[in-house]
């Protein structure tokens, strides 16, 4: 694939051709400049491809390790539109991804999934650990947010809020098509059920966004995780 085919046409229109030699010279110059630029870009692109992928993998691995303490081996699955799963070779995948983590003996510790929704300022992206044996969310981390510092960004640090996700009930309904109870965010101090998220007062909108994100993600993806649990447990 050649970069130089994309060389832009010069926006400057040449004046009524006084001599063809000058326009030939002009085209030749633009061509060679485009060629040099194309070469430079392609070289950089090729050269940085591997480090970029490695960086992304390291960040993901670290997040998964943080959410699933004791993890030794990780396998990444991509969820296909039809509901099947495939093992991914690299992280570049358009659909939802499942990060399965295994301990030293090879037993499945849990699956880390992604969830995002719109917060106060922009989209909040989070990752959470799901334990199929406990049927619960056991860990949670905000990976990207632009919420108001001092207010909305408490969702990354508030200990009471984070305590919600040490064991958040997300068991599936009887026929396994969705979660039995939707994850709901409630006003601070009014949490009664294990599937409710206690909001942070002063960061209600951000807390609700987290609840909505988790609800959407658990509804869509946990049935798929459970349907393929046998495969995921074996790591294939």
């Amino acid at each position: 694939m050649s970069a130089t085919t994309q060389s832009p046409k010069s926006p400057a229109r040449k004046p009524p051709a006084t001599e063809t030699a000058s326009s030939v010279k002009m085209i030749r110059l633009m061509g060679s400049v485009s060629l040099i630029c194309g070469l430079l870009i392609v070289t950089t692109y090729r050269g940085t491809l591997a480090p970029i992928q490695r960086n992304q993998e390291i960040i993901m691995k670290e997040t998964v390790a943080e959410l699933l303490p004791g993890v030794e081996r990780q396998v990444v699955y991509g969820v296909q539109p039809a509901g099947g799963i495939t093992v991914l070779k690299n992280l570049d995948y358009a659909g939802p991804r499942l990060f399965a983590g295994y301990d030293a003996s090879g037993a499945l510790l849990g699956v880390v999934l992604e969830a995002s929704d719109r917060g106060y300022a922009d989209v909040i992206r989070t990752m959470y650990a799901y334990s199929p044996s406990k049927q619960a969310i056991t860990g949670f981390k905000v990976v990207e947010l632009k919420e108001t510092p001092g207010l909305g960004d408490k969702i990354t640090s508030d200990p009471a809020f984070l305590a919600n996700f040490r064991h958040l009930d997300v068991r599936l309904n009887a026929d396994g098509t969705s979660t039995a109870h939707p994850v709901t965010t409630v006003k601070q101090g009014t949490k009664k059920n294990p599937w409710e998220v206690d909001a942070i007062s002063g960061a209600t909108i951000s807390s609700r966004a987290v609840g909505r994100a988790l609800d959407k993600s658990t509804r869509d993806l946990l049935p798929i995780v459970n349907r393929h649990l046998g495969r995921i447990e074996k790591g294939e």
């Binding site: 832009p8 010069s10 229109r13 040449k14 002009m26 633009m30 400049v33 485009s34 630029c37």
Partner: peptide, 12 residues
């Protein structure tokens, strides 16, 4: 050449 000056600069 003068006419394609800016275009060349932007490309670079």
């Amino acid at each position: 050449p003068k006419q394609v000056r800016i275009a060349t600069y932007i490309l670079i």
